[in-house]
Amino acid sequence: MIKPTPNPPEDPATSPYESLDSKKLHEAAERALDHHLGTPPPKIHLADARKGQLFIVAPDVDTDSLLANASEDIAAIKAIAGDLAFEIEGSRRNVALAIYRMAEGAQLLIDRAMDNLDPPNPVEYRVKV
Rank of each mutant, 00 (worst) to 15 (best):
I2K: 09
K43D: 06
K43W: 07
A49I: 05
R101G: 09
H35Q: 13
A113T: 07
S91P: 04
Q107N: 14
L109Y: 01
V95R: 04
Y100L: 09
D64V: 15
F86A: 08
Q107D: 15
P12D: 04
A75K: 06
I110N: 02
N121Q: 10
P40E: 13
P6Y: 10
R50E: 04
V129D: 07
A98C: 13
I77M: 02
M102P: 03
A81W: 02
E72D: 06
I88V: 15
E27Q: 03
A28S: 01
V57N: 06
M102G: 11
A28H: 01
L66S: 00
R50H: 07
I56R: 13
S91L: 07
A13Q: 12
A28K: 01
L109V: 02
A79N: 13
D34C: 00
R31H: 08
Y17S: 03
P6H: 09
Y17W: 06
V127Y: 08
E27D: 06
D11R: 05
E89V: 10
I2N: 11
P120M: 07
I44A: 06
A29F: 13
I110L: 01
D62A: 08
M1C: 13
T14R: 13
S19D: 14
P59I: 02
P120T: 08
P40T: 13
L117Q: 00
S22V: 02
P4A: 07
S71M: 12
Y125P: 00
D64R: 15
P42V: 04
I44M: 08
E104P: 00
M102R: 09
K51E: 05
T63E: 05
D73Q: 02
A75M: 12
L25A: 10
L46N: 08
M102F: 03
K23L: 14
L20Y: 05
A70E: 07
V61H: 12
I99A: 06
H35W: 11
N121P: 05
P12M: 05
P120D: 11
I74Y: 04
D21P: 03
P41F: 03
A29L: 13
R126P: 00
N121D: 14
I74C: 10
N69F: 11
L84D: 05
L20A: 09
R126N: 06
H26W: 14
G90A: 11
S19G: 14
Q53I: 04
P4G: 07
P8K: 00
A81R: 02
K24I: 06
H26C: 15
I44R: 09
P122W: 05
R101C: 12
P9E: 04
L54V: 15
T63P: 00
T5L: 14
R50T: 03
I99R: 02
P59C: 03
K3T: 10
K23Q: 12
P8C: 00
L46M: 10
L109H: 01
P16V: 06
I88T: 15
R112S: 13
D60K: 14
A106I: 02
D73S: 02
K3Y: 07
G105Y: 03
L109E: 02
A13V: 12
L37P: 12
E104V: 01
T14V: 14
Y125I: 07
E27L: 03
E72Y: 01
A85Y: 11
